[in-house]
Simulated scan of single mutants.
Amino acid sequence: MTNLTAHEQQEIDRANTSGLQPVVFVHGLYLLASSWNNWRTFFEERGYTTLAPGWPDDPKTVVEAHDNPEVFAHKRIKQVTDYYAQALSRLKKKPAVIGHSFGGLIAQQLADEGLSSVTVAIDPAGFRGVLPVPLSELKSGAPVLSNPFNYHRAISLTYEQFRYGFTNALSEEESRQLYEQFAVPGSGTPVFQAAAANLNPWTEDQVNTRNPERGPLLLIAGEKDHTVPLAVVTAAYKLQQQNPSVTAFHEIPGRGHSLTIDHGWREVAEVAFAFVAEQLSISQ
Rank of each mutant, 00 (worst) to 15 (best):
F149A: 13
E70L: 12
D13G: 01
I122L: 04
E270A: 12
D205V: 12
I220Q: 00
H257G: 02
I220T: 00
V276C: 10
V63Q: 15
A65L: 10
G126S: 14
P244F: 00
R153N: 09
T81F: 02
T61M: 13
V133N: 07
L20A: 09
A231Q: 13
N150S: 07
L239W: 01
I12G: 07
E174M: 10
L135Q: 11
F102V: 11
V24A: 04
W55Y: 12
Q108V: 05
R153Y: 07
A169S: 14
M1A: 11
I282Q: 08
E160T: 09
V268L: 04
S35A: 15
G19F: 07
T49Q: 14
H152Q: 11
K94L: 10
R176Q: 15
L259H: 01
L20D: 01
G126C: 07
A274L: 09
A121R: 06
E180R: 08
E180C: 02
Q241A: 05
V80F: 02
K94R: 15
A52H: 07
T189S: 07
Q181W: 05
Y237K: 03
E278F: 03
I77V: 15
K93H: 12
A33R: 14
G141W: 05
S258R: 07
D112S: 03
R76P: 01
N198F: 03
E45G: 10
N68M: 12
E270M: 07
F42M: 06
K93Y: 06
E160C: 00
G126Y: 05
A197P: 03
L280S: 02
A235I: 00
R14Q: 09
K92E: 10
P53E: 13
F25Q: 09
P132I: 03
H27M: 14
L110M: 10
V62I: 15
V24H: 07
A96R: 06
R255T: 09
